[in-house]
Each structure stands twice: as C-alpha cells, then as structure tokens.
Amino acid sequence: MTDMAQPQHWRAWLLSDRPASRRQARLGRAYAGWQRFTTNKLAMVGLAIVLGLVLVAAFANVIAPYSPVEGGDLRTERLLPPSAAHLFGTDDQARDIFSRVVYGSRITLFVVVLVAIIAAPIGLVVGTVAGYAGGYLDAILMRITDIFLAFPKLILALAFVAALGPGIENAVIAIAITSWPPYARIARAETLTIRSSEYISAVKLMGASPWRIVLRHIMPLCVSSLIIRVTLDMAGIILTAAGLGFLGLGAQPPLPEWGAMIASGRRFVLDQWWVAAAPGAAIFIVSLGFNLLGDGLRDTLDPKASDQ
C-alpha cells in the first residue's frame, strides 16, 4: 500500500502549485519539462541514441574486442567481410572495424562537446552584449559576425586547419571558430525582444548595472533557444569533423575517426563496401539522434510554450 502511494506522493510534491522551497520549485519545473519531453516519442529515441553514444564512448575499452589501432596479420586478415569474429569485418590494415567504430565514438563525442563548450558561450556573450548595448558596440560585433557568416563553414574551417596544421584539436578549434556566429545572431535577436520588456525595466529601476542585467536576467532566457540550436547543429558539427577527417585535415591516422575511416574505405567501396559503410552508418545514426533530441528540446524548452 505505501509502496503504491510513494510515487504518487513524489509526483504531487514535484507538481505542487505552492512549492515550499527553492529546491522544490526548481525540481518541479524540471519535472514538468521532463514530462512534456517524454510525451514526444521521437525525442525519446533521440535521447536514447545520444545516451547510447555516451555509454559506448565511456566503455569503449570494455565493448571493443580488439585494439582500434593495431591490426592483425596483414596477409590473412585484411579486408575480411563481416563475420562472428569481426562483426563489421576488417579494413586494409587488418584492423577490426567494429572496434574502430566503437573507439571512434570517443573522438566524435570529444569534438562535439568541445565545440559546444567553446562556440556556444562565445555566441551567447557576443549576441547578448551586442543586443543589450546597441549603438556602436552592436554594429562592430555584428559586422564581425557577418564576416564569419559570409564564408561557407567547411571552407573557413579548412582555411583555419591549413593555417593551424592538421590534427583533431585544431579541427575542433576551427569548427568552433566557424560555428559561433549563428548563435550570436540568435542570442541578439532574443535579447532585442527581452530588452524592451517590463521586467527588464523593473530590474533597471532596482538600480542593477548593465552587466548584472545581461548576465542574470537576459542570458538565462537566451540559453534555452541556444541549447536547442546547438543540439540541432551537432549533426552538422559531426559532419564537418568527418569532412575534415575525410580530407585528411582532421584526426590523423591511425586514430579511428569516422570521417577518416570512410576516406580510407573509399578505395574499396565497390568490392569491400563494409569498410566505409560501418562508420557511415555510425555518423548517420548519431546525427539523427542529435536532430531528434534537438526537436524534442525545442518543444520542451520553448519559453513561449513553457509559460503556459
């Protein structure tokens, strides 16, 4: 009886209309958001894929049966088709493709997380400051943003990598540098509507400094649309990283980066299709997962929807 009542009790506590503490208010809000999120089945699929990626990356050494960089016997184990011993077959260096795809998830996650950590805050700060300050500062910051937006992303990233030298870290920096401008645009647009609202006027009348208003009152409202946009961009980031890897400017051999793996499989794509297909499918599934998750987050975090 009490076992049955317990979950009911927690639900009521979380969804209470009169929370009794800061913690309850915050948890209640999060729980309401989670409830909205779970009603979206596709978003749950996306979340499952992304969680799967994280788990695979975390336990790569447990999951992968072989070493991702050291191959077997080059005379007998090159380009073997998928079998029980080698789930996805082997590549031209006689390496187990399944193990390489599993370890490759670490590189993908590394790229995605680092780009998000670098690019999103830059975009957020540039956008909110430009939007709130207005005038010259706005003009200067937004023209810089425009310059970055004027180049195709991959070409600009290529130029940066060419200047910095090939390698996974430089690829991350290059992608980050090229992906913040849209975030700045979004943050600025949101800031412009928030800036003129009465609750910002009210805080101004409390005597708050512009920095305090931007940091504590405007930024939190821009964050949710930025999270949505970043999540939706993840697929693009993975593809750009893969593209750089494919062109030989990203991760260097023998690192098991998915793009580079497709590049090396290209030569055998007609006879040994599995060499390119496995990393290709991995890129496809993870990109799809991030897109579904982003769509679900948009429904959950949309400030207009969540205030109802």
């Binding site: 929370p19 800061r22 208010a25 609202s197 009465e198 609750y199 006027s201 009210a202 805080v203 409390m206 005597g207 708050a208 305090r212 504590r216 009152h217 939190p220 409202l221 400030p303 205030d307």
Partner: peptide
C-alpha cells in the same frame, strides 16, 4: 509582463536586496 518568467517570486524579491 513585469515579472521575469523564469524567476520565482523569491528570486524576484531577492534581486533589489542583492543589488543594494
């Protein structure tokens, strides 16, 4: 329109005290 949509009453009221 005059209350921040993402702040509890508590946060809204704590703000003027923190500023001053």
């Amino acid at each position: 329109g005059s209350l921040h949509p993402r702040q509890t009453v508590d946060r809204t009221l704590a703000e003027p005290l923190a500023i001053h």
